[in-house]
Design a protein around this nucleic acid. Sequence first.
DNA 1: TACGATACGGAGAGCATCCTCCGCACTATT
DNA 2: AATAGTGCGGAGGATGCTCTCCGTATCGTA
Lengths: 210, 210
Amino acid sequence: MSATPRRDAQRNHERILAEARILFAERGIEAPFDELATRAGVGAGTLYRHFPTRDALIRELYDSSIEMFHRLAPEILGAPTGWRSVELFVERLGEWVASSPYLPAVMRRVAEVDPEHRPGLEFESAIEEFVERAKREGSLRPDVSGVDLNVLVNMLGSLGQFGGDYLPYWRRQLTVILDGLRARPDSTPLPGVSQDFEDFHRMAHERTAP
Amino acid sequence: MSATPRRDAQRNHERILAEARILFAERGIEAPFDELATRAGVGAGTLYRHFPTRDALIRELYDSSIEMFHRLAPEILGAPTGWRSVELFVERLGEWVASSPYLPAVMRRVAEVDPEHRPGLEFESAIEEFVERAKREGSLRPDVSGVDLNVLVNMLGSLGQFGGDYLPYWRRQLTVILDGLRARPDSTPLPGVSQDFEDFHRMAHERTAP
DNA sequence: TACGATACGGAGAGCATCCTCCGCACTATT
DNA sequence: AATAGTGCGGAGGATGCTCTCCGTATCGTA
C-alpha cells in the first residue's frame, strides 16, 4: 500500500493511456485490448493490472478530459466581454473535442455505466452567466441558450471524424457559426424552446449512436 | 437463375436491411451478425446467403442512401432561387443524415474497400452551380464554398448521435448556421482557402474515426 | 395437388479476443 | 550488494462471434 507507485509502473500507466487515445481515435473505444498492449509495448497482464476492465480505462480517459475542461475554464470565463467568452467557449472546446474523436463515445459510456454522474455540472451556471452577459452587451442573439452552445460545440467537435488533416479548414465552419450567433435585427428566430441542461443531459445519455 | 427471386427471399432481404439500419444506428456497423439474424427473425444461414460479407450489407445500405440522394435532388436543385437551394440542401440532407447515424461509418467503409468510388460525384457541379447562383443573388456570403456546405451538412448530421429525441431541437442549430451563411456587409471573412471536392474526398476517406 | 426448384434454419467447427496465472525481472531500501 | 517487495510478460484456457453445411420447409408452376 505505497503512496507512490514504482517508477516503471507509472511510466507504463502513462504509455497505455497515451496509446489508448491514439488507438481509440483510430478504431473506436472497442478496439482490441491485446493490440493496445502491443502498441504500448507491455504484456496483456500489465494492461489488465492497470485497467481491470475496459470501463476503468475509459473512465480514466474521461477524467483527464474533465481536467482539461478545468484547465480551459479560466481563460473562457475570465474573458473581458461576454461575447469574447462565447467565442472562446465555442472555439477552444470545439477544437479540443475535434482533436479527440473518441470523446463522445467515452462520455456516453461513462454516463451509461454511472448514470448519476453529471459531467460539467459545475460549469453550467457559469455558462449561463456569460451567455446572459453577452446578450446584455447586445452582441449575442437573444434567443440562443447555453445548451444550444454546447450542441454547437459538439457539432464542431464532430469534424474530428475527418482526422487532423481537416484542422486547417475547421475554422471556416467555426466562423460561419459565430457569425450566425451574432445579434442582428433581422436574424431568423430560433424555432421552439431550448432544452435546459437537465433535459439535455438526460437525452444525450440514452445510448443510441455508433 | 430466375429473374425474380422467390417472394419469401425478397421479404427476408428487406427485413434484414431494415433491422440492420436500426441495429447499426444503435450499436455501430460492427454489431454482431448473429444478433442481426435474430432481430430480423431469420437464421444465420439466410443472413449469409443474402449478404456473404459484412461489406456486402454495408454496400447495399450505401446504395440505398445514394438512391435517397437522387430522390431529394430535384427539389433542392429545382428551387426558385439559389438561396432556397442552399437552405434546402443544408436542411434536407442534414436532417436525413441525422436520422441515419450509421451513415458516416458506412460511407467511410465503402470508400476504404473501394477507394476509386466517388459518391455524389454527379452532384458536385450542380452544387457549385446553385452556390454561385445564390452568391450572384447577393444572399449567400461570397467566401463560402460547396465543400463548406457539405461539411456543414455533416456537422448537422452528427446530431443524430443524440437519437431521435433531439429532432425537435435540431432546427435551432440549422437556423444558426443558415443565418451565418447569409451575405452581410460585416461578416467575418472565412479564414484560408476552401478545399475543392477532390481534396475533400481524399481527405475524408483516410480512415480515422470511431 | 404434385413436383422440382429455391430458400430456410440452426448446429457446430474455426477463429479472434478476453483475461488469468505464475515464474521472472526490476526497484528501492538498508 | 543484498533482499523484500512490487510489477512485468505472455502462454493458454474461456468466451463469444463468424460462417458453412445440409436436412427440411416453402414457393411457383402445371
